[in-house]
Design a protein around this nucleic acid. Structure first.
Lengths: 138, 138
DNA sequence: GTACGTTTGCAACGTTGTTGCATTTGAAAT
DNA sequence: ATTTCAAATGCAACAACGTTGCAAACGTAC
């Protein structure tokens, strides 16, 4: 699937900013922050445009946002083919990367009487396999 | 347990700001934001002092921080007597309140090979029982 | 190519959180 | 009670993130 097709499928205008963001996020191994995405883009876009593009793409469910604690915001592709609808996120506190754990099923938590839920965010913090192996070398 | 005792137990100085924050958070039914805590305090403290107090109290594990998506930060008492170590949080998207779900056990998620974890944050978004009942009246 | 609505860039602004430094305060020793 | 000193506070300045209004530029359909 190409970025242009995705935009067309969602019936939103094909602009270079949106197209670029999708391409970067699509090829990324990890979720990327605003700045990480900007660095990988050829075009130079205003921060406002960036935020508005993220917002649009999120509303169309083309990408999704992951927030770690505070102030660390990452974006990943929201593809129901590769990602399950409800998946957990893994945050490596050593290399600061975020990954979608597609093979981890989020349990349905039992809520108090009368409570209803429509979304469960799970963020697991730890050390990823890359950082673990780096330790051995040091 | 009184706020002063808690401070003494953790061997940090008893200041009116810290004491006030603990008292407010201790008696609150929900987790409270910075502004909500300030409103309930008699003294008027500088924002810097506030942030530094939160930081200290968090480091001492007297309170803990819950972040929703972005920009919505709430604090709750970190009491191992009333709260389990790892508990889920419930965020009502209607009244914007956050509650610690002490009776909800967080499952141990199975991670990919080589990954290790030390913390799992679970945030369940939905409608709380109060807002559900309000709906019926409308 | 024209026309229209959407998107962009810019400027300004608001909120959140941090840092450095001088002043004040808490608590322990005298 | 007074002295003492590290710790906490208040203030000013700053940085990062995100939003809003508006004029200019752009995408798309005719």
């Amino acid at each position: 699937m190409k970025a242009v097709e995705i935009l067309n499928n969602h019936k939103i205008k094909r602009t270079s900013c949106r197209e670029g963001i999708i391409e970067v996020v699509m090829t990324a191994k990890h979720a990327l922050s605003e700045n990480e995405i900007r660095e990988r883009l050829s075009g130079n876009y205003d921060r406002t445009t960036f935020y508005r593009s993220f917002k649009t793409l999120e509303e169309c469910k083309i990408i999704h946002k992951i927030v770690i604690d505070n102030q660390l915001v990452k974006y990943a592709l929201d593809n129901t083919v590769t990602h399950k609808n409800e998946h957990a996120h893994f945050f490596c506190t050593k290399c600061n990367t975020v990954q979608c754990l597609d093979n981890v099923t989020v349990q349905k938590y039992k809520l108090p009487d009368g409570y209803s839920d429509f979304e469960t965010d799970v963020l697991i913090k730890g050390i990823c396999v890359n950082c673990k192996n780096q330790n051995k070398i040091d």
